[in-house]
Design a protein around this nucleic acid. Structure first.
Lengths: 257, 257
DNA sequence: GAATTATAACATAAATTTTGTGATTTTGTG
DNA sequence: CACAAAATCACAAAATTTATGTTATAATTC
């Protein structure tokens, strides 16, 4: 077992149990404590966990769990399924907006196949990826970089979006309940709203687990979206609220690889 | 001599003579032909040269010579010297603008040390680097990505810059003659001018070899700059023109490592 | 089709990264 | 405050990765 596998595994343990003991994992992987110390140190530096005496924890509520580097590691198969379904709405030649989030960066990857295409985004991961792909016109929105979301936000971002126009915007959300989608961060909400305002079609791409939660700011009314893509059917109350409106719902199926 | 040095040297040879022979350079560096084959293969893949039977050429006029990946490899010691001198104008806490160009990205690297600092840039290399440095507030300008310059340009870029204000702008130029600096690309010129307009101090950072050349568009009058940093004294005519004006000239010295 | 050059595959060498050990310091606890 | 457990440090050893060379085979040029 190699270093990175071991570290990934440590994270998995941590996600399951919130805490691990150093002696424990050293024994489990058959390596010295020092090696585990180094693993934990590096992961801590990467912002994934917090070292405590005798082990490490992943404390919710702190920056850690909400950090993009952490979320990036989670449920990548669901993300891929969502991204592929979302991409089916796009034809070559279109102009698309993609917002922040690790789900969105997977979508960015997938969309790079649909060239020629114009991608407008504030998502740093997508910029980095799309840069190298010919046939993709990449338009960055600019703004102040946020390490927490790995994307750019602020007045500059919003102003840039207000001067642009896309065929379709893909919006993600960390929480939704009833007819509303939520987000905890004001700057992020504004950027997403600006994208929606600047696009013909609006598409919400959301993990089914996010339903039943709320957050400080209302991001949008679900009925504002032309399409909602999720990995499971929407909860009954939400489905009922949307019934009869113009919002289509699509369920992404995981393609078992 | 290490791999990268050897490759750098191959490029230098190529720049001087337009073509190299494989047997030649294998003998010169005292390595096997196979190694040189691999060097040339990789450099070709990087878009720097073109392999031909028995050697390689660098055909000007094609994308190669003007490509940023090519320029990136040139004269890195001069760039570092220029960057370090430029950085001496900056104090922690300042807001600086840095434009496109490989020289500028070196400057970005160096400035990341001066934290806390706010960096405003359209340079993709700097964004990628500064992102990971805490204590650096990174503000991207947005715009359409240009693979040729590895930076963002266009209306969005200019609009973003027009709403911002920095303490100092570092501008680079590929050509200067008499009292004027030049650039071949209109969009690039506009972004540089927008940066200058949005900054208190203006500083031109320019390799001495660039003097005596011109290009399609005038970028700026050298007298507009508060400081000009170069690696050798300015040519007499230019120096005379600037004499008595408010422009300071600084010569960067290479620190032999 | 002979000579030369290029590619591919594998072995070896060099460099880098990762790990373990033991000494030393820090931390928490009674 | 003293003790034990844990963490850190510094260095050596091991493992892995990367770079290079060698040889055999294929492709090109003339």
């Amino acid at each position: 077992m190699k270093r990175e596998e071991r570290r990934q595994e440590i994270i998995n343990l941590l996600v399951e149990s919130r805490a691990v003991e150093l002696d424990d994992i050293a024994a489990r992987f058959g390596v010295s404590k020092m090696t585990i110390h180094r693993d934990l140190d590096d992961l801590e530096r990467a912002g994934v966990l917090r070292k405590v005496r005798g082990g490490a924890t992943i404390d919710a509520g702190t920056q850690f769990e909400s950090d993009f580097r952490f979320r990036e590691l989670q449920e990548s198969d669901v993300k891929r399924a969502l991204a592929e379904t979302a991409a089916s709405l796009v034809e070559p030649g279109m102009t698309v907006m993609i917002n922040d989030g690790s789900m969105a960066s997977v979508l960015g990857d997938v969309l790079c196949e649909k060239k020629p295409i114009t991608i407008i985004t504030n998502n740093a991961a997508i910029m980095e990826r799309a840069r190298t792909v010919s046939g993709v016109t990449l338009m960055g929105t600019g703004g102040v970089y946020s390490a927490k979301f790995n994307a750019y936000f602020g007045i500059v971002t919003e102003a840039a979006l207000s001067r642009l126009r896309a065929d379709i915007a893909f919006i993600s959300a960390p929480a939704a309940s009833g007819r509303l989608a939520y987000h905890m961060d004001e700057a992020v909400v504004r950027s997403k709203q600006a994208m929606m305002a600047a696009s013909g079609q609006k598409c919400l791409v959301i993990n089914s687990r996010r339903f039943g939660h709320t957050a400080l700011h209302v991001l949008a009314d679900l009925a504002e979206f032309d399409t909602i893509i999720s990995d499971k059917p929407l909860p009954p109350d939400t489905a009922a609220e949307l019934d009869g409106g113009g919002t289509a719902v699509r369920i992404a199926k995981e393609t078992t690889t």
